[in-house]
Simulated scan of single mutants.
Amino acid sequence: MGDFNSVIQFIKDQYKTDNFIPLHVPKFGGNEKKYLLDTIDTTFVSSVGAYVDQFELMMQSITKTQKAVAVVNGTAGIQVALRLVGVKAGDEVLTQALTFVATANAIAYQNAIPVFLDVDLDTMGLSPKAVASFLEEFGELHEDGCYNKKTGRKITACVPMHTFGFPVHLEELIAVCDIWRIPVVEDAAESLGSEYKGNPTGSLGKVGVFSFNGNKIVTCGGGGAVVTNDIAIGEKGKYLTTTAKVPHPYEYVHDEMGYNFRMPNLNAALACAQLEQLDGFLENKRKLAKEYQSFFAAKGIHFRTETPDTKANYWLMSVELENKVDRDLFLETTNANRVMTRPIWQLMYRLPMYANCQRDENVNAEFLEERIVNIPSSVR
């Protein structure tokens, strides 16, 4: 496959422009300006305000969870989620090698050690079979939880990431982790609006975390949310992310180490306006995905689609090329013609700070690393 000119033209036709086409940009077509002006008029622009409360209630409703906590970004959300499920310094956390660096960094911020396991080819997310195989070989149950026989360290969490909004095989993964008494924290940063067997992503693990970065399906410039069905965990999360301040009429009382991970009311106002449009964004993106799927099928190029029993938000849409040579040519040709495309991430164990972490063979992850390319996916 050498001539990608028809692909470039098709993408330009979808976005009705010959100008530069970015990978994913926000769409502001609702109450964004109105709500932002309201925060300015009321002077509540910082971390206390009605929009923070409204945002948390909207996220509870969208994710069908009992408690949502607004945070400054998704990475901070994962870090505090790990603390909430009991991850301590020196512990190990199972996750996937094929992910954005924030997943691994959040583990490191807790002074824990990531273990990088393989993904499934169909979801591009953490493989339950890979987790089961690893634990059968290295896992050992003690009275206080699961330990790694090779390192002697306790394994205190498992963090699957829903790659580009495609849900991992959650039921199987949670079943495996339950056997080994390992809580699951869903890195749902990319999957707002995605569903697994009718359930919103982020709602099935012990804790779920979302991102509202500038390139996400819904954005507030920066921002994140931690969601859970365990109200006690949720309330603890709110307390920890707001500097662990004990309520008092005037004294500053802090009884444990907390974080200043608060989402400002300005960002929350923007988020609320964006969340009001989520259903429309999802419909628009799913329509684009169908058009891409039909086009690429006729070209003999594999367009990545949702798996059975799931509904993907198609945050970043992607194609799978035949090999690395085709992938590199596709990237070079599209970007040279002002159509932004990007390869999937380098595997985490290729990065110097994670090179010595324990891992499995990552056969599927290495296959996908050489072939997956993201294509323009913005709401039109």
Results as ranks from 00 to 15, higher is better:
310 T>D: 03
217 I>C: 04
308 P>K: 07
247 P>H: 12
201 T>V: 14
263 M>Q: 09
162 H>D: 11
206 K>Y: 05
15 Y>Q: 13
177 C>P: 05
368 L>K: 10
271 A>V: 00
138 F>G: 01
161 M>Y: 15
255 D>V: 09
58 M>K: 11
2 G>W: 01
185 V>R: 12
99 T>L: 14
327 R>G: 14
371 R>Q: 10
371 R>D: 11
197 K>D: 10
107 I>T: 10
126 L>M: 10
358 Q>L: 12
8 I>H: 10
344 I>A: 15
111 N>F: 08
157 A>F: 04
24 H>N: 03
303 F>T: 12
369 E>F: 13
21 I>S: 03
162 H>Q: 07
364 N>Y: 08
322 E>V: 00
333 T>K: 15
326 D>H: 11
59 M>E: 02
18 D>F: 00
242 T>L: 01
39 T>C: 06
45 V>F: 00
162 H>G: 07
277 Q>G: 05
279 D>M: 14
236 K>T: 05
60 Q>G: 06
338 R>F: 02
175 A>T: 06
97 A>L: 09
164 F>T: 07
47 S>Q: 01
65 T>Q: 06
21 I>V: 12
34 K>N: 13
332 E>R: 15
298 A>C: 06
117 L>F: 10
309 D>A: 05
2 G>H: 06
232 A>P: 00
291 E>Q: 15
183 P>S: 07
319 V>H: 11
372 I>P: 04
217 I>W: 06
201 T>W: 02
273 A>R: 04
9 Q>Y: 13
370 E>H: 14
285 K>F: 00
50 A>C: 03
160 P>L: 12
370 E>T: 13
315 W>T: 02
204 L>Q: 09
249 P>H: 04
111 N>G: 05
181 R>K: 15
331 L>K: 13
264 P>I: 02
203 S>R: 00
7 V>C: 15
237 G>A: 12
367 F>E: 09
4 F>S: 03
103 T>N: 15
262 R>D: 02
155 I>G: 08
192 L>K: 00
279 D>F: 11
86 G>A: 02
153 R>C: 09
248 H>N: 13
301 I>W: 07
238 K>Y: 12
6 S>E: 14
195 E>Q: 11
98 L>W: 10
109 Y>S: 15
33 K>S: 08
82 L>S: 09
105 N>C: 01
315 W>G: 05
316 L>E: 13
186 E>I: 05
1 M>S: 07
74 G>F: 08
12 K>A: 09
284 N>R: 14
22 P>L: 03
308 P>R: 02
4 F>K: 03
43 T>Y: 06
260 N>P: 01
175 A>P: 00
342 R>G: 00
14 Q>F: 14
200 P>A: 11
179 I>M: 07
60 Q>W: 07
137 E>N: 14
350 R>D: 12
